[in-house]
Design a protein around this nucleic acid. Structure first.
Length: 466
DNA sequence: CACGTATGCCAC
DNA sequence: AAACGTGGCATACGTG
């Protein structure tokens, strides 16, 4: 295990490496950015004009007069959820926000409302976010065609990093349309290509280094095994070979990761259940998962209720009951060493008032149970990336290379690589990220994985390399 | 008018 | 007993 002095050195050297990265900056295609801003603005204008012709906007204006503002969710909520006799549309609201007692108006709620005005509202809000936060946010910070985001090591509770002005770590990618519009403005320097090197499932691997769970380690070591596929099979009551890509995706993001982060079945089950209908989940043979569950006698989500003893109970034959059992097996049999580690780790925190990370950080203070479990994993995973980044920047400087690292996103490194140096760069990142780091930190007891992508034209067009 | 809070959404 | 972790940032809106 690393010492506190090791942790200090990592922060010092990390700070220096990040300063070099900030100074280098990332090239921005300003003509394309300006063109995209203009196109997006036009589309926003046009859509707003369309909305203003809608009957819903007429109701809106009648209710709020000069104060009517098309971006106001709370105003829209009053139109949607008040009765028709009161000048509304009479939709049922779906729960309240956390602090206030306002009706929830997030994307999840709005996409359930089948009304053209609401669909347009969501699309419009997406474009407005693109324009303001990303297109304009980047434009504001560019100097001489280069963007220099800040990378901080002193702001995050877990000893991860953060980024600002602009935040380089949350540029859209999941929505392809939106991702393309902004990311295609990020370009390599002339004669260069962009390279992104991602650690694969880094947090899972690092968590295995803490909990030493044999089943988890087996999943990591054996490429034919697939934890998310297996859990999708259990959650949706099918065979592993029947698990579609989509079913795997929801099992991973609505069950496995939430469970790892400290969620539990009562929160997971509704999300898993809703995914079936909402995304029309099927087996690989095209059989609807709804029918599969029906054949197993599960016809409804069901609910939880408290036994007088305080124990949470579920009704037999419900999906809730099923996921409760899946969870019981998940922690009680499959990952029972992991489960014991969580218990022991938290008890030790309660005894000493703190915990130590494998990477040389002591964390003392008042924390929630989930924090105590999650911080060391999240922090140490980032430290693997930071250590690699430091070595890479040193190597580039030592060899007076033209390649520059331009950014970092928690478990990935983005570099602007000179074409002549590409093969050396790809080889060296692999050497550092996969091998050198394990010599430095013997506590890494599982193999690591790196995925490399190269973008010749812009950041959106990145393609995997072998 | 400046500022803080609530809410929501983008990433990992 | 508790119940999904970490950030940055934009807009709406109320308050001083």
């Amino acid at each position: 295990m690393a010492t506190i002095a090791d942790g200090c050195r990592l922060m010092e050297e990390g700070c220096q490496a990040l300063a070099v990265i900030e100074e280098a900056g990332m090239r921005i295609d300003m003509d394309r950015l300006d063109w995209t801003i203009s196109e997006t603005s036009q589309q926003i204008e046009q859509m707003m004009a369309e909305q203003k012709k809608d009957d819903v906007w007429r109701l809106w204006r009648r209710r709020f007069g000069e104060k009517a503002s098309m971006g106001s969710r709370s105003q829209l909520a009053k139109i949607l959820f008040s009765l028709e006799k009161d000048g509304g549309l009479g939709f049922e609201h779906r729960g309240h926000t956390r602090l206030g007692k306002q009706a929830r108006m997030d994307e999840d709620v709005l996409e359930q409302i089948d009304h053209p005005f609401v669909k347009q509202f969501l699309k419009l809000e997406g474009l407005k976010k693109l324009r303001s936060t990303y297109l304009m946010g980047v434009r504001r910070e560019v100097v001489d065609g280069l963007l220099h985001p800040s990378f901080n090591l002193h702001l995050v509770r877990t000893y991860r990093s953060s980024s600002d002005h602009p935040n380089f770590q949350n540029i859209p990618i999941r929505d392809k349309e939106i991702g393309k519009l902004i990311r295609s403005c990020f370009v390599p320097r002339p004669g260069h290509v962009l390279v992104e090197s991602d650690y694969g499932s880094l947090e899972v691997r690092v968590s295995a280094c803490y909990n030493h769970d044999p089943m988890l380690i087996e999943y990591i070591n054996d490429p034919t095994k697939d934890m998310h596929r297996d859990m999708a099979a259990e959650c949706y009551m099918i065979e592993p070979h029947e698990v579609s890509k989509e079913a795997r995706f929801y099992a991973k993001n609505q069950f496995v990761f939430p469970e790892f982060y400290g969620s539990y079945f009562a929160q997971c089950a509704p999300n898993l259940w809703n995914a079936i209908g909402r995304y029309n989940l099927k087996t690989t043979d095209g059989q609807s998962l709804e029918d599969v569950l029906l054949a197993q006698g599960i016809t409804s989500l069901g609910e939880t209720f408290s036994h007088y003893s305080g124990r949470i109970e579920t009704k037999p034959g419900t999906f809730m009951e099923h996921i409760r059992q899946v969870e019981e097996d998940f922690w009680g049999r499959r990952f029972k060493v992991y489960a014991k580690w969580k218990l022991d780790w938290f008890r030790e925190y309660q005894r000493t008032g703190g915990f130590s990370m494998l990477t040389g950080f002591r964390v003392d203070g008042v924390y929630k149970r989930n924090d105590v479990i999650n911080y060391p994993v999240q922090g140490s995973a980032f430290h693997c990336l930071l250590w690699s980044l430091i070595q890479l920047v040193k190597w580039l400087r030592r060899n007076r290379m033209k390649t520059v690292v331009v950014g970092q996103i928690h478990d990935s490194i983005v570099a602007d690589v000179h074409e002549d140096e590409l093969q050396d760069y790809l080889a060296m990142t692999r050497q550092i990220m996969l091998k050198d780091i394990r010599r430095e930190w013997p506590w890494i007891i599982v193999p690591l994985e790196v995925e490399q992508e190269v973008a010749e034209t812009n950041w959106f067009e990145k393609k995997k390399v072998a």
